[in-house]
Design a protein around this nucleic acid. Structure first.
Lengths: 206, 206
DNA sequence: AGAAATCTGTATCGATCGGTACGGAAGTGG
DNA sequence: CCACTTCCGTACCGATCGATACAGATTTCT
């Protein structure tokens, strides 16, 4: 009855879904974020989502599918600071906004500490290998986005000629990942903000 | 029959152990390193150690005890670059040796990629909470060691007066953790060495 | 030799894992 | 009304989880 408005005009035939898919996905994202892919059991997930196993499988396919959809939601939600940072006018502002967004996202009150893209599945047994590889690709994609943005900055003269955009991108991502690890270990937002500032102190002059 | 030499002179009564404790612990450390605490099952561990479940429980107590002993072995082995770095004469050399050792340890051929202290249990379900907290404390202890060393450097005039040793320490640990995450995702040693160099480019002047 | 102590392999424990079969409930179309 | 479609709760699947009971094997001490 909730949240399944059919934009085609007609209501879908059959019994309507009894829960809000987006809300359930949000709850699942939190659980994966906090406990990791392997550490989150079906019982943990369905309890948090407020639905039964059957409903979860019918709506999302499998635990792995659910994880992928939760990661997509994470990308569009808590990790939306990444595309926003890429739009900043200068490379320095991109870097600053990226690390600032990372600090905020990994220390956000009411959300699990750390980054789903890091702690979701960093090392895993056989059951979690797929999730691990998915997250590694997710992080590498972030590096690629930063590299392309910094390449553009070099082409535009915003960064000095001869600057290695790939190195800047990997450096920033490494610092962000380190901030995420520290956040997962309980570091405060102020602590990590100072770390981010320090990491940018030697940014190439414009 | 192997490797249980009694340093007290007398052999212990009862049937002697049929395997080398240190070697078995080394194998277990590798499994935890590669698969994480929750991702490493008893079957994975005992298969790698070459012993039965019973022998493992008799010799090490429990999975959690085994993990603690494996972490201690990791501290004394692959992570021994930390105390070595702390002994360097200047703060800059400490920082350089620390990050260099981190890059080497997290990209060592024949060893799992990444750092056991990070990926052993970063996010976990109920079963892995103890391991997660243990590793967070382990990383925080590393920060404390660095901070104390940098405080000494400030006192000795090796670092400029007014330098925040705690910030330097947390910054270095964050970079090291980020390097470990990148290594777990497949970054090469050369990639990460350049990242480490860049992270030190703005180190306070001596 | 015989008692005592320790180690090892098998076989198993109850609990939980991810995933599913099935039937009734609840909505649509005619 | 009725046929049809879909959702949901229960109950259950085989497999695996960490951990253990037990008996036989192997060693030291007396």
């Amino acid at each position: 009855m909730i949240g399944n408005v059919n934009t085609q005009g007609k209501a879908p035939i059959g019994r309507p879904r009894g829960f809000d898919v987006d809300q359930a996905l949000d709850r699942a994202m939190r659980v994966f974020w906090e406990q990791g892919y392997e550490g989150a059991s079906l019982a943990d997930l369905t309890d948090a989502m407020g639905i039964s196993r059957t409903s979860m499988y019918a709506a999302f396919g499998s635990k792995e599918d659910l994880f992928h959809k939760a990661l997509q939601r994470y990308t569009d939600g808590p990790a939306a600071y990444v595309p926003r940072a890429l739009e900043k006018p200068t490379a320095r502002q991109v870097a600053t906004a990226f690390l600032d967004g990372c600090v905020r996202a990994t220390t956000s009150p009411g959300c699990p500490a750390g980054c789903l893209g890091v702690q979701g599945s960093l090392a895993a047994g056989e059951a979690g290998l797929s999730a691990r590889d998915t997250l590694a690709a997710w992080r590498n994609n972030g590096i690629s986005l930063l590299r392309e943005r910094f390449q553009r900055a070099v082409d535009e003269g915003d960064l000095p000629a001869g600057t290695d955009p790939g190195l800047l991108a990997r450096y920033l991502m490494a610092v962000a990942n380190g901030i995420a690890v520290q956040a997962a270990g309980g570091a405060t937002r102020d602590d990590l903000h100072m770390v981010a500032d320090m990491a940018l102190r030697q940014w190439p002059p414009t």
